[in-house]
Write a protein that binds this DNA or RNA. Structure first.
Lengths: 229, 229
DNA sequence: TCTTTAAATGTAATTTTAACACTTAATTAT
DNA sequence: ATAATTAAGTGTTAAAATTACATTTAAAGA
């Protein structure tokens, strides 16, 4: 009988977390070296099982915290993977989540203690199970999302140079963007605040720092602003 | 222990199917009247449980077939819903799928026999559980998808009038579209074949029929064509 | 032959995008 | 002190895409 709750099969439900970060080397992703079987010692996404009294969004937050110490990271659901043998131990369906975070803000030490490591997305090692697939799916989603609304907020430090924002976009979209066109397009969105402060570390002239104007950003989100580079 | 397969909770995993159709009244959705508890007699999406040796995509196809007789409908995964009490009987996580189908091609009789019924999306009754939420999510997705690539293929009959295609777009996007701009934009995509045949049923002058050029469409899909109305 | 009805068709103004290169400010080296 | 170096900063123009907008056409029915 199709709809008998009592006879229906139950399965293990897992979550896997894809965490993007950004630094001077470009776009990065956070991985852990598995300390348990199967595939012990291999690189993997942070994953774990859903609990009976837990919502998937919360499970993703909990699992990420367990493996990295990262707190209260807001993640978006990506896709649910259900290939029969995706996990060799037992049939497990996995719901992938992804998030964008600021590497600097999120204590590198803590991540060290937990054996997590940042990898450039262009140099990701072979991952366990179907995690490669999840990752490439997440990158596609991130690219799409970037074309729908600005992404800098989550990935950049509080104060950043225009050239960092440009580099972030170039990393995500994996292409060169004309500096002048980029700046005028970003400025036309009117969501950045130019500070009086300059960053003197990377050039003789120094470069102005910016912050996001969260209020204006939120106001515009409702209107679905789009960027097309 | 976080990663012990043996002690992890297992949950019921369901699929729910959101089927869109289109006819002279506009955009429609297929619902069934539940013939089992709970919520017997209420309108609902077609849903059922995942089997142990089954992939989610296949489960969605099977469940849809069981309730409607529809065969081999390709569905896309939408989102996974996991609120604790979303199903009052037992904790059930549900993966929603959606598809676009041609109402005429899919035998109304068969659907009758199975107690399924088409509803205009603007006149959908209250649905069980969180199915309203799934539906509104699916409509959002359909709108987005429509702005990314043409949708007519799946929803229209083999041969159709330009005015039907226009109406389809207006139904999905829920706004008026200028006829001349629509036609020139569609034509610029170069994926329609204008037939010599005319449909004489709706006007004295008659209107030319079109079909999709599947080859050109597939070729362009690779280039991610976008429409912006 | 006049009326009716939906179908079919084109242009001009505006906005957006894309391509493109030189100047500036400050430090460092001679 | 002056010349060289380096990243930062800045505008214009051409092309393409989008939007707004109104009349004519083909056939049937009165």
């Amino acid at each position: 009988m199709l709809n008998s709750y009592s006879t229906a099969d139950k399965v293990l439900l897992a979550v896997d977390c894809i965490i993007f970060g950004f630094d001077e080397d470009g776009l990065k992703i956070l991985l852990i070296k598995r300390d348990f079987e199967p595939e012990k010692g291999k690189w993997s996404l942070m994953g774990g099982f859903l609990k009976k009294e837990e919502v998937l969004d919360d499970a993703a937050i909990r699992v990420l915290n367990t493996y990295t110490g990262l707190q209260d990271i807001y993640m978006e659901q990506l896709y649910t993977y259900s290939e029969i043998d995706r996990d060799p131990v037992e049939r497990t369906v996995s719901v992938a989540y992804y998030a964008l975070i600021n590497i600097e803000n999120h204590n590198a030490e803590l991540i060290q203690n937990y054996h997590a490591k940042w990898f450039s997305v262009s140099e990701v090692p072979k991952l366990i199970f179907d995690h490669d697939n999840m990752l490439s799916h997440a990158i596609r989603r991130l690219r799409y999302r970037t074309s729908m609304r600005p992404v800098g907020f989550e990935l950049l430090p509080e104060k950043f140079k225009m050239s960092q924002l440009l580099k972030l976009y170039e990393s995500i979209l994996d292409k060169q963007i004309d500096k002048r066109n980029f700046i005028s397009k970003i400025n036309s969105l009117d969501i950045l605040i130019k500070l009086d402060e300059k960053d003197m570390t990377s050039s003789r002239k120094g470069s102005y720092l910016y912050t996001f104007d969260k209020e204006k950003y939120d106001a515009k989100l409702l209107n679905h602003f789009a960027l097309n580079f």
